[in-house]
């Protein structure tokens, strides 16, 4: 009895979760998201680290991050800043290189993704041994806050068209709150070339193409508390272009 218990503990300790937080001008949000991450990881007892990848924010995000590192320790808060704003894909590559965990969690630092769901992601992953677990706004108790009818219509419409054309086997393609096995994320990032919303979609479409298993956890998405959220004509056009590219190439 005691033996099996300690064995279980060992196995859990072997799993480590690296949270990648790409930031650009998030000085307001970064301390809050870090505080929430520390809270929920602390409560659930999983081994973790938070990797902050700041792309030379002019608002002093990095200085705030340095203060947080002093408060929470260098083993928990890892700073891997870059000189200037580069793409999300390269931010992940940069983050993975420095990650010591065997699982990687990617999420937005703007508080639209709540860390309370991370223990659920981990539980789901362990249940099914999934290669990746994706948060979904479109299923079960999932949902959004702060969206008007137009935004909901665009979101649902775009999702429907994508489901019909690509049949990706996941309900939320443009969401970016996900947990990956480290090697799976590495392989996917290498293959993905898109930008913006389409990048997240390409990641999951390629995952399916490569035969990786996908688990889903309903999440509530609370739109940016500070700062502005954008969804204009340009985003829609580039989304459609990206969708058609994936349609023709995957």
């Amino acid at each position: 009895m005691a033996g099996s218990k300690s064995k279980k503990k060992n196995r859990e300790e072997a799993d480590k979760y690296s949270v990648l937080l790409p930031t650009y001008n998030e000085r307001e949000n970064l301390p809050l998201i870090v505080w929430l991450l520390v809270k929920y990881f602390g409560e659930s007892g999983y081994n973790y680290e938070i990797i902050v990848i700041d792309d030379g924010s002019p608002d002093g995000t990095l200085q705030i991050a340095e203060q947080l590192q002093k408060i929470y320790g260098e083993d928990k808060i890892v700073l891997r800043p870059r000189e200037k704003k580069l793409g999300l894909g390269t931010a992940y590559i940069h983050g993975i290189k420095h990650a010591t965990g065997n699982f990687i969690i990617i999420m937005d630092a703007d508080l639209s993704h709540h860390p309370k769901f991370i223990p659920e992601f981990i539980k789901k992953q362990k249940e099914g041994g999934y290669d990746l677990v994706s948060g979904t706004r479109y299923r079960g108790d999932g949902g959004v806050y702060g969206w008007d009818l137009r935004r909901k219509l665009i979101s649902r419409g775009a999702n429907f068209v994508t489901q019909v054309l690509l049949r990706p086997g996941a309900s939320d393609l443009t969401g970016s709150f996900r947990l990956y096995k480290k090697d799976v994320l590495e392989r996917l990032v290498e293959r993905c070339v898109s930008k913006g919303y389409v990048f997240q979609m390409e990641m999951i479409v390629r995952a399916r193409q490569l035969g990786y298993s996908i688990g889903e956890v309903p999440i509530s998405f609370v739109d940016r508390v500070y700062g502005e959220s954008k969804l204009g004509g340009n985003e829609i056009v580039s989304f459609l272009k990206g969708l058609l590219t994936l349609f023709a190439t995957t």
């Binding site: 809050l32 709540h114 949902g143 959004v144 806050y145 909901k152 219509l153 429907f160 509530s220 609370v222």
Partner: peptide
């Protein structure tokens, strides 16, 4: 699906409270 899209009022409230606590 648009009509039944969940509005997560509770989640937003919870977050606001936690932001205060965190600060």
């Amino acid at each position: 699906r648009v009509a039944t899209f969940n509005d997560c009022e509770e989640a937003a409230k919870e977050l606001q409270a936690q932001i205060k606590e965190a600060k």
